[in-house]
């Protein structure tokens, strides 16, 4: 149905503590997030989809989300509500 949108990427259950959610249906396994995560939080099994293998190491910098070509990654903000992780402390490119 055109224009109909589900609330967010189709992810089964959203564990509150996991900082990085990866839509397994949208991810095409390109390894960009795995390669560019500064803390090596993300891994990808051979032939599989990206996984947040080490969420405890995640700083919520949001780089994986902005570099994901499949728009499959959502980094949930830190405790401070509203402040998007991308807004502060995001990797500065300029």
């Amino acid at each position: 149905m055109p224009g109909s949108i589900e609330a967010g990427p189709a992810i089964e259950g959203r564990p509150t503590d996991n900082p990085v959610e990866i839509n397994q249906k949208w991810c095409k396994g390109c390894d960009i997030c795995v390669a560019f995560c500064p803390k090596e939080v993300l891994t990808r099994p051979e032939g599989g989809k990206a996984q947040a293998a080490h969420p405890e190491k995640c700083t919520r910098c949001g780089l994986c989300e902005v570099l994901c070509p499949d728009l499959a990654i959502v980094v949930t903000p830190a405790a401070r509500k509203g402040a998007s992780p991308r807004g502060q402390g995001g990797v500065s490119d300029a």
Binding site: G3, S4, I5, E6, G8, V74
Partner: peptide, 9 residues
Amino acid sequence: PVSYYLRTS
């Protein structure tokens, strides 16, 4: 979220 602007279907 970015998905708000997508036709997720």
